[in-house]
Amino acid sequence: HNLTITQGKLFFHYNPKLCLSEIHKMEEVSGTKGRQERNDIALKTNGDQASCENELLKFSYIRTSFDKILLRWEPYWPPDFRDLLGFMLFYKEAPYQNVTEFDGQDACGSNSWTVVDIDPPLRSNDPKSQNHPGWLMRGLKPWTQYAIFVKTLVTFSDERRTYGAKSDIIYVQTDATNPSVPLDPISVSNSSSQIILKWKPPSDPNGNITHYLVFWERQAEDSELFELDYCLKGLKLPSRTWSPPFESEDSQKHNQSEYEDSAGECCSCPKTDSQILKELEESSFRKTFEDYLHNVVFVPRKTSSGTGAEDPRPSRKRRSLGDVGNVTVAVPTVAAFPNTSSTSVPTSPEEHRPFEKVVNKESLVISGLRHFTGYRIELQACNQDTPEERCSVAAYVSARTMPEAKADDIVGPVTHEIFENNVVHLMWQEPKEPNGLIVLYEVSYRRYGDEELHLCVSRKHFALERGCRLRGLSPGNYSVRIRATSLAGNGSWTEPTYFYVTDYLDVPSNIA
């Protein structure tokens, strides 16, 4: 807008934040220059609390790290170098490059900038070799853009010569660093050979998330399962459950009422301010606690030095998902009996873990797994792929695949051998790939016309006998059925096997 004052003059007093240069501009645009008398524009009460600059400061050096910015700028000295009290560095987070010096300023003089007072450097006698002032900004957020400017702080001049310097606002972004852990990993099994893994992005990506790394490792069953005799009275049979499938998407929606109208769909109840505040506090606490764990609990591995020492970490090797089922080394339970199943799973520490690289999504279907087997899954978020990966501390989750139908069934015939004193040795093959492992066998036998009897055969007993022995049988026709019990439950009964026990007292003698 054009402003013209045809008559009258300007009068400025007691404006401590208004620089004289701005008042002189007002004289020019209003056409009143030359009308004012000496005392109409006070030299001592206008701009006496402001830094009124008329020179431009330029930054000469900028260096960044993930949490620091090192700045240096060209030296500046007023005509009387004693008038320079120091520099004021202003900075704040700036997602967009549209910041002005006066953003967030209120009537009390406060604003949204963080201000650092910096002492002037030592003055050199040689004007050509003056030290460049600077400042190291610490405690910054990774991968965050900051708006920065600097200006001088000078003393009051009796001659009211307006001098000083100020830089333009520059924008500097800190470097990326390792992201925080992925949030809320959930693993479920939808079949006997697959596990579905879902997660949420890290709360602090500290860069642009480029991919996720998912490692999985087959877990050995508890050692007590191999040692305890679950045929003993009072000892509860062990059981394991597989990871249940995901709930429906509708039930997972946030901010939804727990109660549904019987007449149909209901609208979600909005969260109160107290609920939102509580969630923010919980989120802040979780982030602080995660940072504490990362800094205190997890110790970084030592990389190899120039002395030739090897990095103890196993090298990563990509495998196809079809090879995942046989990740671990199978060892027989008892070496003397080769027909026992290889369900003991000690994992070799030198073995390469299978892994998958996930790009542009937060889910993965891990296939080719062994049925009813526990897996430990390790999830890392990465925001750099080359020249070397920059990934987060791992988040861990466990899951067990679903049982395989008929995996616990005894394959092959049940054979028998009759000894003296009416002892019958029953023999059968253990299931080759049971659900988890076989903890015991149930032997059901009966003599024709009598009630059915049951015998429990422990895992250890089966390994020693290759089956079991029935003792003290009365003469007669017998039928026997056997079924295995694994961590997933009972298998199917075998087809009945028949044998006849004679009275050993009636056996004919070869003595003449």
Rank of each mutant, 00 (worst) to 15 (best):
Gln384Trp: 13
Ile366Asp: 10
Asn383Lys: 00
Arg353Gln: 14
Ala484Met: 09
Thr373Gly: 14
Ser367Glu: 06
Leu277Trp: 05
Ala220Met: 09
Cys391Asn: 01
Arg483Phe: 00
Asn360Phe: 08
Glu290Lys: 03
Arg481Glu: 08
Glu389Ala: 07
Val214Ile: 12
Ser341Trp: 14
Leu225Arg: 13
Ser248Val: 06
Asp291Gln: 04
Val299Trp: 01
Thr415Gln: 12
Lys278Pro: 06
Glu247His: 12
Glu433Met: 07
Pro338Glu: 07
Thr343Lys: 13
Leu505Ala: 07
Arg316Gly: 11
Asn435Gln: 04
Glu465Phe: 10
Phe462Glu: 02
Glu356Asp: 06
His352Leu: 09
Thr333Asp: 12
Phe462Arg: 10
Gly306Ser: 10
Tyr498Thr: 11
Thr272Pro: 04
Gly489Ile: 01
Leu440Tyr: 07
Thr343Glu: 07
Tyr448His: 07
Glu417Gly: 07
Arg301His: 04
Thr494Gln: 01
Arg319Leu: 06
Ala488Gln: 15
Ser458Trp: 07
Ser341Asn: 14
Pro332Gly: 08
Phe337Ala: 12
Gly325His: 08
Glu221Trp: 15
Asn421Phe: 03
Leu213Arg: 10
Gly449Leu: 11
Lys361Cys: 05
Gly234His: 10
Leu213Gln: 14
Glu362Leu: 11
Lys406Arg: 08
Gln384Ile: 09
Thr373Ala: 08
Leu455Asp: 15
Val297Gln: 01
Phe337Asn: 08
Cys468Ile: 07
His254Pro: 10
Tyr292Asn: 06
Lys357Val: 15
Gly467Met: 06
Pro354Gly: 14
Pro332His: 14
Glu452Gln: 14
Lys432Leu: 09
Leu470Asp: 00
Thr303Gly: 08
Pro475Val: 08
Asp229Tyr: 13
Ala488Leu: 13
Phe298Ile: 02
Leu473Ser: 01
Leu213Ser: 13
Asn208Asp: 13
Val358Arg: 14
Thr502Gln: 07
Arg286Ile: 04
Phe337Leu: 12
Ser243Trp: 12
Arg313Lys: 12
Asn295Pro: 02
Pro508Ile: 12
Glu465Ala: 12
Ile366Arg: 06
Ser262Ile: 13
Asn510Ala: 15
Val457Ser: 01
Cys391Tyr: 15
Cys456Asn: 03
Asn208Thr: 03
Ala463Leu: 11
Asn295Val: 02
Leu470Met: 07
Glu247Asp: 10
Leu379Phe: 05
Glu362Pro: 08
Leu228Cys: 06
Val365Leu: 12
Asp273Lys: 10
Asn490Val: 05
Val507Thr: 14
Tyr504Thr: 01
Gly264Val: 12
Ser320Lys: 14
Asp323Leu: 12
Ser342Trp: 13
Lys302Leu: 07
Val297Lys: 05
Arg319Asp: 09
Glu420Gln: 15
Ile276Val: 05
Gly489Pro: 03
Lys361Tyr: 13
Pro434Tyr: 04
Glu362Gly: 07
Leu487Ser: 07
Val443Ala: 05
Ser223His: 11
Glu265Gln: 15
Thr401Asn: 03
Val345Lys: 09
Ile209Arg: 15
Val439Cys: 09
Pro496Gln: 05
Lys271Asp: 06
Ser305Asp: 07
Glu442Met: 05
Ser367Phe: 06
Glu290Phe: 03
Val365Thr: 03
Phe419Tyr: 14
Glu362Thr: 12
Ala394Gly: 13
Pro434Gln: 08
Ile276Ser: 04
Leu237Ala: 08
Asn510Trp: 13
Ser398Ala: 13
Trp493Val: 00
Glu351Ser: 13
Leu379Gly: 00
Gly436Leu: 11
Gln275Thr: 04
Ser284Met: 15
Ile377Ala: 04
Val345Asp: 10
Val327His: 11
Pro270Trp: 03
Pro338Ile: 12
Leu277Thr: 05
Pro387Gly: 15
Asp506Lys: 04
Glu362Asp: 15
Val359Pro: 10
Val345Arg: 11
Trp216Leu: 13
Leu473Pro: 02
Val501His: 08
Cys266Arg: 05
Lys236Met: 05
Ser248Glu: 01
Val439Arg: 13
Tyr504Ser: 10
Ala488Met: 15
Thr485Met: 05
Val214Leu: 09
Lys287Pro: 06
Glu389Asp: 07
Gly412Glu: 07
Ala463Cys: 10
Asp273Ser: 12
Val501Pro: 03
Asp311Leu: 10
Lys287Ser: 04
Ala407Asp: 03
Pro300Lys: 11
Pro475Trp: 10
Glu258Thr: 11
Val443Tyr: 01
Thr494Tyr: 02
Ser479Arg: 13
Gln219Asp: 04
Glu378Met: 07
Asp506Thr: 14
Ile418Asn: 13
Glu356Asn: 11
Cys468Asp: 02
Thr333Phe: 14
Ser304Gly: 13
Ala309Thr: 03
Glu227His: 10
Leu235Thr: 05
Arg286His: 01
Ala394Ser: 07
Asn360Ile: 15
Gly306Val: 10
Leu228Asp: 13
Gly234Ser: 11
Tyr448Cys: 12
Val331Asn: 09
Glu433Phe: 10
Val501Met: 07
Ile482Ser: 01
Ser223Met: 14
Phe499Ser: 00
Arg218Asp: 06
Trp493Arg: 04
Gly476Ser: 01
Gly476Phe: 02
Leu232Asn: 15
Ser486Leu: 03
Thr485Leu: 15
Phe289Lys: 00
Gln252Tyr: 13
Arg466Pro: 06
Gln252Ala: 13
Met402Pro: 09
His454Ala: 05
Ser243Glu: 03
Arg466Ile: 08
Phe499Thr: 00
Phe246Leu: 10
Glu404Asn: 12
Asn421Thr: 10
Lys278Glu: 03
Pro431Ile: 00
Val214Glu: 01
Leu225Phe: 02
Pro354His: 13
Ala395Val: 07
